[in-house]
Design a protein around this nucleic acid. Structure first.
Lengths: 202, 202
DNA sequence: TGAATTATTGAACGCAGTTCATTAACTAGT
DNA sequence: ACTAGTTAATGAACTGCGTTCAATAATTCA
């Protein structure tokens, strides 16, 4: 077996990530292995460990890209909509993105976490998304203190997360005939309703 | 290596399940393997395949027990409480049960589903839990049609599921400082509030 | 006692992540 | 041009996984 031409480190790194991304999107998490990546880029599994120190580091790198895409999604909101409609649009595009990329979802949120601590780009991005949700909620219902807004944003995130977990894991049909987006969006409406109802009472 | 004494099929079956349950509770999903079970009951991995046709069948059998325990939890509600309080008690005991048995949770809801169809005891139990939730919601707010009650029950289940997924997967701290139970219960309160607020408006 | 049946097994297959000593290829110095 | 030193890539191995299967040991029956 002939040794492949040398590649600069950074280039090889990118080849590995490209291959990994491809396999992940094509065959899902269970198809992603060091040997599969090596096969694809015409190297040996051991070579991968000269660049990444573990498989989970590779997955983490893909997660970084995924989170960046999600953050982009969150930042690309039409400015002319009401806060409620922007929240709806946001939720919808998030759910659709994850539903269209189930393997990315599994890489990001599947299984129990292995790391004790997450890098800043990870925690920071999620914190940012949460704050953006909270901001939209405050804009939607002005009389809403920061703490409560964040709690509601957390609830929003959690309930959408539940719908996506069940949906992507193909277990939502155990509970309902509705599809993932429908379930997630009715959760959004529930929060919006609860805010307007409360505002009407005061 | 001496061959162990023969055990009647059913007895061996139970030994396997007992060992599996023990390993699962002790070491979690990643510790549960055919060889680990065999080690524990002093048989060989191959023997297990004379009794169960796959590892996932064993997990499925444990899931049956888990779901039975959950159903028991749901049926053991104090009758003297209000509907809202019973819903609260239910949610709390469900969340606590799963939080105390994270490996059971992972066995039940972790990873993507492998089976195309689930047995009746599986789908039926979950359907039953949902209907019980819907029933409590109707009792709490009389003017609530069946369809909407079921949708709310689904939302309740989904949002608690989201909290538990994040909590058991040890990812909830990415989103909030609150603990799993707190997050789940505030979701319950949100639903209860939205019902009473709506009732007050009409 | 010998034959048929049954339970259990060791060994293997293909896969996984990961490690490491060896080898091949390139670079710099003389 | 030749050598020494450095780096990149590798094959082979280790452990462990789910699973299969022909062979073996123990039991039952004629």
């Amino acid at each position: 077996m002939s040794r492949p031409l040398r590649q600069p480190r950074e280039e090889l790194r990118q080849s590995i990530l490209d291959a990994a991304r491809g396999i992940l999107d094509r065959e899902g998490m269970e198809g992603l292995s060091a040997r599969a990546i090596a096969r694809e880029i015409d190297y040996t599994a051991a070579t991968i460990y000269n660049v990444f120190s573990s498989m989970s580091d590779i997955v983490m790198e893909i997660n970084r890209e995924t989170l960046a895409e999600v953050a982009l999604l969150f930042s690309a909101l039409p400015k002319d909509l009401s806060a409620a409609d922007r929240l709806r649009a946001l939720s919808k595009s998030y759910v659709c993105f994850m539903q269209d990329n189930p393997a990315r979802w599994n890489a990001l949120f599947g299984g129990n976490r292995e790391r004790e601590s997450f890098p800043n780009w990870y925690t920071g991005t999620i914190e940012g998304l949460k704050l953006q949700l909270a901001h939209l909620l405050i804009e939607h219902a002005g009389d809403l203190d920061r703490v409560r807004a964040e709690k509601l944003a957390e609830h929003l995130f959690v309930s959408v997360h539940g719908a996506l977990t069940l949906g992507v894991g193909r277990r939502l049909d155990l509970l309902t005939q509705r599809d993932t987006l429908d379930v997630a969006m009715s959760g959004v409406e529930l929060i919006l309703n609860s805010l307007t109802a409360e505002a009407g009472k005061l």
